[in-house]
Design a protein around this nucleic acid. Structure first.
Lengths: 148, 148
DNA sequence: TTCATATTGACATCATGATGTCAAATCGCC
DNA sequence: GGCGATTTGACATCATGATGTCAATATGAA
């Protein structure tokens, strides 16, 4: 009923889910030091380079527009971002970082960089590259239907 | 500011978060074929071996008791589980699988086994073991404070 | 046994993300 | 230019998981 490969695959999947949980928690922790949350950080970071519409942010980060909309509205209320008119689209305004939003984002990203540098140095570049490749391969595999 | 190792670590973390998302979606899909959700499947599976209290389920699956309580109450309402008196603790009743709950759980687990067998066969046992080890190592690392 | 401490269930509130629907706006094909 | 399809924002509802509080219960030290 369950092959050794099936057992191993299930163990891997469970381990990945657990690691994903830890990674998310680490992200929440990093964001909290800037007085934000992971969801807010994701939206702030998305518009760090250039203003985007809510729908564009959702596509860029693999989220539906609706949750992004809610977070974006909160950020706008708090003065970390603001909606600017979009010459391309009358309704779809561009969410833009304010000066305060830039400060907050830079602070969180700086902390994240230190965190990643410290962890990365311990692992070593070779193992990191292999790990990244392995996880990326696995993702492509899980995306495929199991029958093929 | 950002070392190559830091860059690689960040890429890995983002990839893991993405894979975790896919794995969760796969779990939701498997559970849905049994008319359940991932959260309900997790609770059903936790009491598959022996009855447990809500708090025990939470600890076993790394969740707080409160969300488990809510899911458990729904399962009890739907007749997939039932609360039985606990000789060890007057208030903490044991959540127990009903016959229907057993059927549903077995069906979902059978489907998961087929899914895992098919995917596992494609990857191969060696790569799976290496991937599992790598991910487990990374988790231990992220759990440590970054300074050490 | 007694009493401080920890655990537990039962509430509440909240953040997050998914999904559905609708009308306005844009785009693309003709 | 006109018109159908798509995109978008703006609502709504829902599932999930985290957190906090409280009283009832169990546990362990004295």
């Amino acid at each position: 009923m369950r092959t050794p490969e099936g057992e191993a695959f299930t163990s891997f999947v469970v381990e990945v889910a657990t690691l994903g949980h830890f990674v998310t928690a680490a992200g929440e922790s990093l964001a909290r030091h800037g007085g934000q949350s992971l969801a807010r950080w994701v939206v702030l970071d998305a518009i760090g380079e250039r203003p985007l519409t809510v729908a564009q942010i959702g596509r860029a980060r693999g989220m539906a527009r609706q949750p992004v909309q809610r977070v974006a509205d909160v950020l706008a209320e708090e003065g970390l971002a603001s909606y600017q008119d979009n010459p391309q689209h009358r309704r779809a305004r561009l969410l833009t970082l304010t000066a305060r939003g830039r400060e907050v984002l830079d602070a969180i990203n700086a902390r994240q960089a230190a965190w990643a540098n410290a962890h990365g140095a311990r692992v070593g570049i070779d193992k990191l590259r292999r790990a990244h490749q392995l996880v990326a391969d696995m993702r492509k595999l899980i995306e495929l239907p199991p029958q093929s």
